[in-house]
Computed example of a mutant assay.
Amino acid sequence: MLAAFVSAPAPKDPLSVLEVGERPEPEAPEGWTTIQVKAVSLNHHDLFSLQGIGLPAERMPMILGTDAAGIDEDGNEVVVHGVISTPHWMGDETLDPKRSLLSEVHQGSMAEKVAVPRRNLLPKPAELSFAEAACLPTAWLTAYRMLFVKSGLRPGQTVLVQGASGGVATALIVLGRAAGYRMWVTGRSEEKRTAALALGAEQAFETGARLPERVDGVMETVGEATWSHSIKSLKPGGVLVTSGATTGFNPGAELNRVFFTQLSVIGSTMGTKPELEALIQMCRVTGIRPQIDVELPLTEAREGFQRMLEGRTNGKIVFTL
C-alpha cells in the first residue's frame, strides 16, 4: 500500500529521509481493526519523527501520521483518536505512562490503511468532510484541551496565542472566538497576522511586541523563542498553558516573575477520547470548522512537509487518499 514513512533518522535534514512508497498492509491484532484512510493531517510530530525525536532508529521503518479520518471495516465513516493507551488502562489515557501516539510504537496513519484499537474510533458526522475531520484528533484536540480543560479561563477573559498560523494556534483562535474569549495573537509577518484576524482574533501583534495590557492566559506551543514574552505578558495570577516547543525546549525560566506574580504554568498533551467527542460535537453545534491551508494527495507529501518546515502555513496541511 502507499504510505509516507521514515527508515532512518536525519536530525539536521529531516526531508532527506521522508519516503513515499509501498509498505505492507497492516494486520489488526485482537481488539483492533483496520481503517481505509481518506484524509490525514500533518503535524510537527511528523517532522520530529523524521529527526528521530521520540522515534529511535530501532523502531524504523515507521509510517508517519498521528490522526486520520476514513472508513471502517463495516463501511462507517470514522475519526481516529491517535492516543494509544495500554489495554487495561482506565481513565485519562494521556496520563498512562506507557501510552503512545500512532507512529511512535504502532505504524501511523499516513497510508492507505491503518490499524487502530476499536475503542479509538468515533463516528464522523456527515457535516464534516474527511479533510476537516482529520484535523481534529491532534492539533484541534490539543487546542481544545489547552483552552477548555487545562486553563481554567472563562469566556470574556483575554487569551494570547503565540504564533498565529500553525495548526494548534489557528484552532485556538477559532475555538476561543466561538466560546466567547478575547483572542489575541502574535505573528511573524503581516500576512500571518492578517489571516489570524480573519479567523476571529480580536488583535494581532508582532512577535515579542509590548501588549496594550497584560492578559489572563497565554497558549504556548512555540517554546524557546516566545517563552520570556509569554511570561511577561501575563497578569498577576495568570496562567500559561504549554503543549509544545517547536523552536526549542530550553526557555528562559523567568522564575522570579512566576513566583512574584503567582503565575501558573500548566503542561497539556493531546486529549482524551471523550474530549475529542465533545470537540466534534462543538463543531457540529456551532458550525466552526478547521482552517485548512492546503490539501494535497499523499503522493505530494514532500511539498506539505516542506511548507511546514519553512513555516509557510496558515492552518492545517492535509493529505488525501
Rank of each mutant, 00 (worst) to 15 (best):
N256G: 12
G52K: 02
L55M: 10
H45A: 15
Q162K: 12
F260C: 11
T286C: 04
S103R: 04
E27L: 13
V285F: 01
L47E: 05
T33W: 00
S100W: 04
W89S: 08
V285L: 09
E27N: 11
V6W: 03
G187Q: 09
K98R: 14
P236R: 13
L175K: 01
E191V: 12
E254R: 14
P137I: 07
V78E: 09
I231Y: 06
A57L: 00
M219C: 07
A164R: 04
L2Y: 03
Y144E: 02
K232I: 04
E275P: 11
A245F: 15
V79F: 03
E191C: 02
V185L: 05
T246G: 07
G21W: 02
I231M: 14
D46S: 08
E224T: 15
P9S: 15
V78P: 12
T313F: 01
A3N: 09
Q306A: 15
E213P: 02
A278Y: 00
V17R: 12
Q107W: 05
V79M: 03
A111I: 06
A131K: 05
E254H: 02
M282K: 11
L147S: 07
G152C: 11
E112Q: 15
S165M: 04
A133K: 10
R182I: 09
N256F: 08
R214P: 14
S16C: 05
R59N: 14
L255A: 13
N120I: 10
V114I: 12
P290K: 04
L153Y: 00
G187K: 06
I317S: 05
R284W: 01
Q281C: 05
K150A: 10
T86C: 01
Q306C: 04
R302D: 08
V114W: 02
L141G: 08
T299F: 00
A68I: 07
T247C: 11
E58D: 15
G238E: 11
D67C: 12
L147E: 07
